[in-house]
Design a protein around this nucleic acid. Structure first.
Lengths: 370, 370
DNA sequence: GCGTAATGTGGGAGCGCTCCCAGATGATCG
DNA sequence: CGATCATCTGGGAGCGCTCCCACATTACGC
């Protein structure tokens, strides 16, 4: 039921259009005003050391007085660099409701870009968009691209690589040619699974992410490796492949329950939330009957009842690292592909039934890890 | 308690750098290859009608065969337009956790921009950022700006206007010179308040947004106007000014409870969520003891217990409308400022204690509204 | 004192486009 | 059949910068 208010288009009182403040707007003008050549002004603007201190000061004074700003388009044309980098965000990113992953990622990218005097251009990897990122790259608008990996081996990536534009992926891509930043999904999954095992659980189930996603595969490997290193073998009945979504978490838990797990590691917090609902629906309790752990540490994890033990990753840091890596790559165009792994944190909360206090547990785990 | 995995920087196996596919890359080259002049190719590329059909076809064939893309930087320098618009997102936007407002807004802007062959540049309005949007505008990188109003009269806005760059604000700004898109906050607030009053509530309280935010002021006016038009006067004890946040909603509700409201309109869903918690903590029930309504219809509203009656606004539509309005303004540089009001929907859920079914209520309200 | 650097500075060419004007061609018409 | 016009095409002049090379000036060595 709803009432719809109407759309209104109106006109505001006319206002004396803000005349642009009168400013000297070209290098040439500044040159004339300060009695030097265009070249010298250019050197001053670009912090070229081959300018005498006196000249520099004088020119800078004129520049400031006139409020001069170099025209970046002209600079781009002459120098072949635009100082713009593109951020490619995958399909349907706004549907990832209540998940601040992409906003945080973007924030990190914007921060790093700004700090290094670059600009961020947003490119959505949606089907139906007319301007794909490879086209943008080929039109010379951007110097490099941060590719925020879609869940699958994205069809946008290959054409982009073919343009020769420097690319950094956020999250390990399928294509081994591209540099990337990522968290240690495998190690983190191993760590949190070990945590469950050390608490005495023996039938630890896995609600995995989709196998086409490298991050999901890595987390599954970590899980398996942890189980194996505790001298157990993985019961395939206790492994379910979901889609990272809450719904698939529920479905997974429903399937797993009949095999009576005593603990569950869900490869995303959202799947863990779904699993929790299903466990409740079955009349069981967390953590008393089944221990539960997730991955991501999104805000949701803290707010769950009970709060969720999980692995914290920091999307903002990923974004910063991606941009910094990209800028490195751009500086040295025939550098070899690089990878950067960012640290994660194991966040222990009530959902795994740890009765040890944090101090103790911390010491235990450290001991175990070395 | 946490364990920190280490940061790792590694090198990937060297890969034969993807040589750029050999492509003709300038107008001049295409001109030579197709035996016409640079000017003619330019006309073809820009859909200029003054080209014979035969020539056009021929040139287009060559263009396609060579995979030629015009260099947008050069075009920008020559034409004075870059086809780039900036989106300014206010301070701390990633902190608005679990609120998909900005992602949706950006998505809408990106969609509209792409459809009209423009690019979106992201500019964060954070203190500490080196490159403010007015500077970006003055450097000639963008043709126009969509300013996503921060809560307060943003200090970034004035310098931006002074540059003479076309600006559209999302949400009514304090400055009357700028065009904007917005939802009808006042009308929508009046409507949802009337809804509460028509359900028989007489002591309807308001948890308002911060008075420095135009949207908050408008919603408060709507509330007051509805109360007045029902022949009641506003009890100032039943009005609390919050900050749109959940915490301020709780605090507001705590203050209001002693004045025994029978209904509460919170000017944001987050404040409504806070109010709900406080009502519960006081041992009261929603909607039996106190009816509750919010504003925004964020996902949270649907998931609350009970689900929240609220006003739905669509950030994505706002983003699209803002970009479209901006492009209109850019096309006609000395147009008068314009405003566009987008429709909202009253979403009736259980929290207001409506015992009427939706059909009936809908008819009633329609009758009442005309 | 002169050669040789080192240090500053100026000017030209050119980045790849757009935009304007001039010219060529053919159609139309009194 | 020349004048007039519409239609199409070509070339020049820039847009505001960077980058390179040439030149002027001063510093330093023996």
């Amino acid at each position: 039921m709803w009432e719809r208010s109407q759309m209104i288009v109106g006109t505001l009182p006319r206002w004396e259009a803000g005349r642009k403040a009168r400013v000297a707007s070209t290098l040439e003008e500044i040159a004339v005003l300060s009695g030097v050549s265009r070249s010298t002004v250019s050197r001053v603007i670009n912090d070229d050391p081959r300018v005498s201190e006196a000249t520099r000061e004088h020119v800078l004074r004129v520049v400031r007085r006139e409020g001069y700003r170099p025209n970046l388009t002209a600079r781009g044309l002459a120098s072949g660099r635009t100082n713009v980098i593109a951020a490619v965000i995958p399909v349907g990113f706004e549907n990832v409701l209540s998940d601040p992953y992409f906003p945080s990622l973007l924030h990190g990218m914007a921060t790093a870009a700004d700090a290094q005097d670059h600009f961020l251009m947003l490119s959505l990897g949606e089907p139906g968009f007319r301007h794909t990122v490879d086209e943008i790259a080929r039109q010379g608008v951007v110097d490099g691209v941060v590719f925020s990996a879609s869940q699958t081996d994205d069809p946008l990536l290959s054409p982009l690589i073919a343009t020769g534009t420097p690319v950094v992926s956020v999250g390990r891509p399928d294509d081994a040619r591209v540099s990337f930043v990522d968290v240690d999904n495998e190690g983190s999954a191993r760590q949190i699974t070990s945590h469950l095992l050390r608490l005495g659980h023996r039938r630890v189930a896995l609600i995995a992410g989709p196998s086409f996603a490298p991050a999901a595969r890595d987390r599954s490997h970590g899980f398996r490796s942890a189980v194996a290193s505790h001298g157990l073998r993985v019961d395939e009945n206790l492994v379910y492949e979901g889609l990272f979504s809450e719904a698939s978490g529920r479905a997974g838990m429903r399937a797993l329950l009949e095999h009576r797990p005593d603990a569950v590691f869900a490869a995303s917090d959202r799947m863990a939330a779904g699993a929790l609902n299903e466990i409740r629906a079955a009349g069981l309790r967390v953590p008393e009957d089944i221990a539960l752990a997730g991955f991501d540490d999104m805000p949701l994890a803290r707010e769950m009842e009970p709060p969720l033990t999980t692995v914290r990753q920091r999307p903002e840091r990923l974004g910063e690292a991606a941009v910094n890596l990209l800028l490195d790559l751009m500086a040295d165009p025939n550098a070899t592909p690089k990878r950067v792994m960012l640290p994660t944190e194991l966040i222990v909360r009530a959902s795994c039934g740890s009765y040890l206090n944090q101090e103790t547990l911390s010491r235990q785990e450290r001991g175990h890890l070395q």
